[in-house]
Design a protein around this nucleic acid. Sequence first.
DNA 1: GCGCGAATTGATACCGCTCTCACACCGGAA
DNA 2: TTCCGGTGTGAGAGCGGTATCAATTCGCGC
Lengths: 342, 342
Amino acid sequence: MSKDAGRPAATPTVNDVAREAGVSFATAARALGDYGYVSAKAKEKVEAAAAALGYRRNDVARALASGSTRTVGLVVGDIENPYFAAVSRGVADVLEPEGYTLLLANSDEDPEREARAIEAFSTRVDALVVAPSRSFGEGRTQAVGKPLVLLDRTVRGLDVDSVGVDNAAAAGRAVRHLLELGHERIGVVSAPGDISSTSQRLKGFRAALRDAGIEPDESLIAHGHSGNGDPEDAAMRLLDRPDRPTAVFATENFMTSGTLRAVRRLGLRIPDDLSLVAFDDTDWLPLIEPPITVVAQPVVELGRRAAGLLLERLRGATGPGRRVRLSTELVVRGSCAAPRAR
Amino acid sequence: MSKDAGRPAATPTVNDVAREAGVSFATAARALGDYGYVSAKAKEKVEAAAAALGYRRNDVARALASGSTRTVGLVVGDIENPYFAAVSRGVADVLEPEGYTLLLANSDEDPEREARAIEAFSTRVDALVVAPSRSFGEGRTQAVGKPLVLLDRTVRGLDVDSVGVDNAAAAGRAVRHLLELGHERIGVVSAPGDISSTSQRLKGFRAALRDAGIEPDESLIAHGHSGNGDPEDAAMRLLDRPDRPTAVFATENFMTSGTLRAVRRLGLRIPDDLSLVAFDDTDWLPLIEPPITVVAQPVVELGRRAAGLLLERLRGATGPGRRVRLSTELVVRGSCAAPRAR
DNA sequence: GCGCGAATTGATACCGCTCTCACACCGGAA
DNA sequence: TTCCGGTGTGAGAGCGGTATCAATTCGCGC
């Protein structure tokens, strides 16, 4: 019995460790899992055996037995959007020190892929952060039955935690900046309007105009999808016409770069021929000539707060959904000027 | 018995479905799991019951029992780097249709966080894609014992699949572009040299100079970390001196934007005062004035290929590690010109 | 009508871990 | 000495699936 050849070649289990350490399975499990009563001596033996065998805990089994995966899922619209990339960093920053792992899924702003992602997550995560698409229904979330935080967007009639900014107010601030410079014909290059954050921004845009006594001209609102080229086309529709607006508000990262591409293609000069305010700041917007004026969201902080809310729920907090609304900042750079006399 | 109150409130299991459908557990499991023999009638009953109860398969349990998680882990250096964002999209594009879920972890280019991420993944994924940090050791991967694909970088002495580009050749091409324009004092703003892809790019840089009969001047190579501000400082060190180079090669996204910030701060004009070639293309580099000339990697395709290799291994392919080297493209835009006479 | 392989079904042994129990032991209070 | 609460340990029952195997039923050729 002293010479037992043929140790299990595969990854060792608690059982193997127990045998090696000369204790019962239960004791080994306690030592390894760090719960219950274990004498210092036993713990030491077990740990030595574990090290010798190269034991590593099987998280899948642990999750099944304990009912907790120590994992959080994040469903974003598009990871290539710097907004989401930054948010995901914020989420991970808070979650990782707590021992949680972040799972990420791209919905590509496609409700069907979103549904699949949530479905796939439903049994393998403890909680979810979702940037909900247009058709994000209650059905989905109820089915999940786990802590959920909505990111950036909200869903009518859904009483869950959410994190974002006051999109209408932020957009209004951007537009007011243009109005104050004297612009009256202001166009918008917008993401699809069925996303709640976008529709709020449009609402803020219209409200700001009305407050200034200007009736919003819906024909000056061009919509593009975030796919390749589409935002540029939308911007072209808006700018390649004789009565083009003197200023443009771009509602989101991809719309901003699309607008800039169109501007370049048309040979327009900013801010002489066209003023531009963008929603969302990025690394590179200050590097454009002239640097672009933006309404900046505290992106990383948004992620942190989302993770914070989740953590509270995971720790048992109950109660109605909370709305965290962080404030935005108008960063004035060089892309806006008074409109030229026609 | 016809009236059974108190159905399980929690998410139903196969057992609940079986009871509801009036079949045995085994049959329900087969119908739900889509394996073995099940009569059409039984399957129908089970599916109806599952729908009625709102059954959803528990992936954790399935993973434990089957030994496969249908999940792949991706460890990137920094998700905010467009390079990694694009690669992750490529990986997901290939994996998702195959029924795999993508897990993502940020290492922040920190060996310790990388180790933790891999550790956390080791038991919950079927395979890994890793952009290895400097100190990525064999120990780590052997311990994992699962299909592994190295991304962008390689590790000496590690015989595993890897995907990337010929960094030395690509860098050489960029530098030659500058040489052909007549530059002789060429500087580099570089990421840390202990990352293999970066060191290869530096190697290519030096080789190209030597081929042109120029002895590389190490003092013209400035290193920055990808953290905030650091790349800009590195670029400042290089550019804010009387004998500054007439051209700069930026080895990576963050180095490129850092260089541009420094250029702007110093009031230099591109390409009059300084020519610039960057490694890696992004959405916005064409929008800079002048648009930046780059060596572009097929980023999404790199991710796809990595996923492809993984899939083959997951299907049982064996054999020595394969190296996939995709080709890069020099995209000449407007940021390079002949050096001005001093 | 009988025989035999294929189709179908049920029972049950795991997967590797968590967690509840029962039991043994120990020292101090009664 | 007896009783008792706190420690330490081992047994064993799940968690919710997958997979194997034996038992039963079905269909069809002869």
